[in-house]
Computed example of a mutant assay.
Amino acid sequence: MCVLCGEFVMQVHWTDQASDDSSQVIVGDQQRDRQRTRIHRTTLCNEILRFYQLTLEEWNGSKFILRDPKGNQEIVHDLGTLWYTAEKILGYAIDPLDPYLLQKLQNK
């Protein structure tokens, strides 16, 4: 059980599974590689979220914390709910094909 949120961590979300692994990942197996991959995915997400002045932080290997510059924050359970949560904090829909966003990502 997660001490801070009182939730049972029973299975890993599919976004935390290795792309070459067809079997189900069990918490604890290859934890170091899974954590390294989570941190890498967090870094990639932050490249996009920076455009919206949001930051994502990996939290304890099971959740993420999404923050805005005003101090608002939300717990994101997995990357599948990240964009919904970002839109909730922002108050408007995110357009992944926004030409200005794509230009910023290319010029990085």
Rank of each mutant, 00 (worst) to 15 (best):
M1L: 02
L4E: 13
C5T: 03
G6R: 05
F8L: 14
F8V: 15
F8M: 14
Q11E: 08
T15H: 03
A18R: 13
D20C: 01
D21W: 04
S22N: 15
S23L: 14
I26Q: 10
V27R: 08
V27G: 07
G28S: 03
Q31K: 08
D33E: 14
D33T: 10
Q35S: 05
R36W: 04
T37D: 11
R38V: 14
R38P: 02
I39C: 03
R41I: 13
T43M: 13
L44Y: 00
N46M: 01
N46L: 07
E47N: 15
E47R: 15
R50M: 10
R50W: 01
F51T: 01
F51G: 02
Y52E: 04
L54Q: 03
E58T: 01
E58Q: 08
E58I: 09
W59C: 14
W59T: 11
W59M: 14
N60I: 09
N60G: 02
N60V: 10
G61A: 01
F64K: 04
I65W: 01
I65A: 00
L66Q: 08
D68Q: 11
P69Y: 13
N72L: 13
Q73P: 06
I75M: 14
H77Y: 03
G80S: 13
T81L: 06
L82P: 02
L82R: 00
L82E: 00
W83P: 04
Y84H: 15
A86H: 00
A86F: 09
I89D: 04
I89S: 01
L90D: 03
A93E: 14
A93H: 13
A93S: 14
D95A: 07
D95Y: 07
D98V: 08
Y100H: 15
L102D: 08
L102R: 12
K104Q: 12
L105G: 07
L105N: 05
L105K: 06
Q106P: 01
Q106F: 11
N107R: 15
N107H: 12
N107D: 15
